[in-house]
């Protein structure tokens, strides 16, 4: 019986199986290569085309009309930081509070519903968020503003920070909470001064990732911050942002403006990559790894 079966079984691994194995495993390597090529091409082109136009004037001057030499994106750089500042003021405390709820109290169905809603909010197309904020803020106030832009980006930051905070707090061992409670520290103090503090590097990582994610957003700013060719430091006025400026210049028909678009994009990517690098450093040095 056994012999009959064995004679039908290939004793050596068939050539076909070996070839299929080799071919598929090689294909995964090719896939990796194909994915990395665009990344290096994008970063390469940004560097090559952008570096020539990034100079002191670019960082300190406002845009000039087509045909004139010089000019820069100083107003857009400042505007980006204004909008991101407002966004962080909204998104960070709100997100952390929501994350604390989910991890410390929300281990139940209600918490699951919130968790799911946060994931839904994270998946809402940014352009739709922009539209809603237009209706809520811009229409109500009667004008575009850095404030409206900040709200749109802040709303996008909330779900990311909520989930990151929750995940990091959950990694804090229960024994640490118990130790603090056992010392007679009230629950709220325990959560803030012990649990959150223990997880702080992870939470900061989550915040910075959220920051990096919204820093380059353009679509939600189209109808909120709107853009501006001039200096503006007022929160209730239309405000320029790097991403908006890159978009305007990229789709224009002028050679000069294209150069400016590459330069603006380079500044933007350096900002974002810088943030992410800091995240990596925090994540690799901090106690709680795995956030990035």
């Amino acid at each position: 019986m056994a012999e009959a079966l064995q004679s039908g079984m290939p004793v050596r691994l068939s050539l076909r199986r070996r070839l299929v194995n080799r071919a598929v495993m090689a294909a995964t390597g090719v896939a990796a290569l194909l994915v990395l090529i665009p990344l290096f091409l994008i970063l390469g082109f940004l560097g090559a085309k952008g570096i020539g136009s990034v100079n002191w004037a670019f960082l300190t001057h406002t845009p000039v009309p087509v045909g004139e030499l010089g000019g820069g994106m100083a107003n857009a750089i400042v505007g980006t930081f204004m909008i991101l500042g407002i966004a962080s003021l909204i998104g960070v405390p709100w997100g952390i509070a929501g994350g604390i709820y989910l991890s410390e109290y929300g281990r139940n169905r209600f918490g699951n519903a919130i968790r799911f809603t946060a994931d839904v909010l994270n998946g809402v197309p940014s352009i739709v968020t922009g539209m809603a904020v237009y209706g809520l803020v811009v229409v109500t106030q009667g004008h575009f503003s850095a404030f409206a832009g900040g709200i749109a980006l802040g709303i996008m930051m909330i779900p990311i920070i909520v989930r990151a905070t929750e995940e990091m707090l959950l990694m804090v061992p229960q024994t640490i909470r118990e130790a603090a409670l056992g010392l007679g520290i009230p629950q709220w103090r325990t959560t803030l001064s012990v649990t959150l503090r223990t997880a702080s590097s992870g939470v900061i990582t989550g915040i910075m990732l959220a920051f990096a994610r919204v820093a380059g957003e353009t679509a939600p700013l189209l109808f909120t911050a709107f853009g501006n060719q001039f200096w503006n430091l007022k929160l209730n006025q239309p405000t320029a942002a790097l991403s908006l400026q890159v978009y305007t210049y990229a789709i224009s028909p002028y050679e000069d403006w294209h150069r400016m678009a590459w330069a603006g994009a380079l500044v933007l990517i350096v900002m974002i990559m810088g943030t992410i690098s800091v995240v990596r450093i925090i994540a690799s040095r901090g106690m709680l790894k795995g956030a990035a």
Binding site: L5, M9, R16
Partner: peptide
Amino acid sequence: LNGFRNRRELDET
């Protein structure tokens, strides 16, 4: 996995 496809023999085994 070893390339055995014969239904009847599979059932038996």
